[in-house]
Design a binder for these strands. Structure first.
Length: 426
RNA sequence: GGAGAGAUGGCAGAGUGGUCGAUUGCGACGGUCUUGAAAACCGUUAAGGUGAAAGCCUUCAGGGGUUCGAAUCCCCUUCUCUCCUCCA
């Protein structure tokens, strides 16, 4: 959601910003309804003020024992009441139209976000490590060979897009999750939370997933949906709160399973575990002062990167162009880890500054100074990181000549071993 | 799932039809005092909308109703707590 005043005062700026994302924002329609609404509510409020005044005087007259005067005043209110009753539905209707329209506006890209509409126009800002060379196996072959993933079982139980992790595979999921959570909590000072995996429509509207992107979500019940990311429950954790200045920045790290229909991606990345309907992820969410939010974005990216560095995996950082970053963001970095078996980079994290877009929808504010009127915080989030693709890179990178997997040092205590051995063939 | 109780400002907690947007306490902020701090005392302190401003409007969980007038009365919904039932 954008600031209404911004749309009123700088309609062309808003149009231009949306256009950078390839979206035509309904600015003119908004302005038309908005001015109608303002006229209507002004009218209504004047009538209410008058009516309130008379009601108050009735109370006073009765207090003075002037029954006749009170009755006379009562008679006066009839007409006003009718007028108010007639105006109210119109105001309400306009208000609802306005709110509905408002939710469809995309967030505007930051000035440092590069132009462009396609992934080709994203900008690589840095890379870490180097691409390993040699012969590499794709992860699905490795996982099968080491009996870490049962693809057929996933399909049998739930259909395509689901797998069963087995043995060291299951343990690796758990190890990566725990490692990442501990790391972000201990090294980067995030507070750990474990939120619900089912959320209400209101929560999803707050983060911007609804109403626009309902097709990506699994719906469990009339008003209960499976989370596509921990971002949704964690952002809503502070809904309707006013934070005191010393509380900022608030930093949360959370693990949840994530559920996505991937409706628009049918047929893509079907092999292996690159794109699944259920996967695990650790998410980082920050609530910060507006003037600091872009520094916090850089820090967030660094926090996410630190996991890949600790695991010794080659990756690159992309700054997404306006058209590729989606509706909600102002500026977004993607982390892409190198998967030697795939011979390509895989997105394992998306770190985004939403500025006040989500804060407006969720009504999360702070006081700049004690006693000062509240302002919206800026909200940022980033994966830290997505488990399956990280596992892909790990397996493909650390497969040794004998087929076993060398476990990077920081992960060893979580795995209870420094190597995943090749099981004896039956 | 059944029975009962409740939902009020950052928090605690009064208020059961007429200057109640709301007594009071805590917290926070400002001041007096103090070398400084604490204590004590005095004062300030909800949010949103609209308007150039003065002001006006809305909000006591949410929605509807009664009334000239609702935090207060009635109906519905949601949530919380207690007891019962059930369950990992």
């Amino acid at each position: 959601m954008l600031d209404r005043k911004l749309i009123r005062e700088n309609p062309d700026f808003v149009k231009a910003g949306a256009l950078r994302k390839g979206i035509e924002a309904p600015v003119d329609e908004f302005l038309r309804i908005d001015s109608e609404w303002r006229a209507a509510i002004h009218d209504l409020e004047q009538k209410k003020a008058e009516s309130n005044k008379i009601s108050k005087s009735i109370g006073q007259l009765m207090g003075q024992g002037d029954q006749a005067g009170a009755e006379a005043a009562k008679a006066q209110t009839g007409e006003l009441k009718e007028a108010i009753k007639a105006l109210e539905p119109r105001v309400k209707d306009l208000e609802q139209q306005l709110e509905k329209l408002e939710l469809t506006f995309p967030n505007l890209p930051h000035e440092s976000t590069p132009d462009g509409l396609t992934p080709d126009e994203n900008v690589e800002v840095r890379a870490w490590g180097s691409q390993p060379t040699g012969d590499y196996k794709p992860h699905y072959d490795i996982a099968e060979e080491l009996q870490m993933i049962d693809f057929a079982a996933g399909a049998k139980i739930s259909g395509s897009g689901f797998v069963v992790y087995t043995g060291y595979g299951a343990k690796l999921v758990r190890a990566l999750t725990n490692f990442m959570l501990d790391f972000q909590v201990d090294e980067n000072h995030y507070s750990e939370v474990y939120p619900p995996a089912l959320v209400s429509s209101e929560s999803l509207t707050g983060t911007g997933n609804l109403p626009k992107f309902a097709d990506d979500l699994y719906r469990a019940d009339e008003d209960l949906w499976l989370v596509p990311t921990a971002e949704v429950p964690v952002t809503n954790l502070l809904r309707d709160e006013i934070l005191e200045p010393w509380q900022l920045p608030v930093k949360f790290a959370a693990y949840t399973p994530c559920f996505r229909k991937e409706a628009g991606a049918a047929g893509r990345d079907t092999r292996g575990i690159l794109r699944m309907h259920q996967f695990d992820k650790v998410e980082l969410v920050k609530f910060v002062r507006p003037e600091e939010s872009y520094d916090h974005l850089e820090e967030l990216v660094t926090n996410a990167e630190s996991i890949l560095q600790a695991l010794g995996l080659h990756y690159r950082v992309l700054l997404l162009c306006a058209g590729d970053m989606g509706d909600k963001g102002c500026k977004c970095y993607d982390l892409e880890v190198w998967a030697p078996g795939e011979q390509r980079y895989l997105e394992v994290s998306s770190c985004t500054n939403f500025e006040a877009f989500q804060a407006r929808r969720t009504n999360i504010r702070f006081r700049p100074e004690p006693g000062a009127p509240p302002e919206f915080v800026h909200i940022l989030n980033g994966s830290g990181l997505a488990v399956p693709r990280l596992m892909v890179a790990l397996l493909e990178t650390y497969r040794q000549a004998d087929g076993s997997i060398a476990i990077p040092e920081p992960l060893q205590r979580y795995m209870g071993t420094d190597v995943i051995p090749v099981p004896p063939t039956a």
